[in-house]
Amino acid sequence: MDRAQLCLSLIKWLNTFKVTVPNQTVEDLSDGIAVAQALREIAPDYFNDAWFKKLKVEESLNWRLKVSNLKKVLNGMLEYNIEVLGIQIQGFQMPDVNLIGERHDSVETSRLLQLVLGCAVRCSEKQFHIQNIMKMEESVQQMIMNAIQELMSKE
């Protein structure tokens, strides 16, 4: 799988959420806030205001604070998978949040967004999210399908 291409496709998909912060580039996503806002839309009862308030929301965070946010986002998703979806992800290479926060790495960002995608297509509102994906251009749908299949093969 071409992960740089996957990252671009997943950013396009992320753009379909009601995200209020910049979310067009890998650098935009490097503080975890856009991803956290998407998660809040996917599972508002779980990724609630109390959870969101644990994140630092400032315009120019240093890389350590970005990584701190990303760790909370990643852990939140993993806990959501276990506690709500009943899914234990094994054998999937987890995103290196240091590389996302410090270097804006697109490969690692693709892994992070892949986990968000996994939450979206299995949450209680999955019908809404899957139908939104089906409205996207075919090449993006193809990348998303591959990403979901890879993720499901690791459960």
Partner: peptide, 30 residues
Amino acid sequence: DGKGAPPGTSEGMLANFFNSLLSKKTGAAG
């Protein structure tokens, strides 16, 4: 919702995949 896409085409394959995902029962909480 893509259900009418011709089978055997990439469009049909994508529709099949996402429709099967829609019908899949998932989650500890249902």
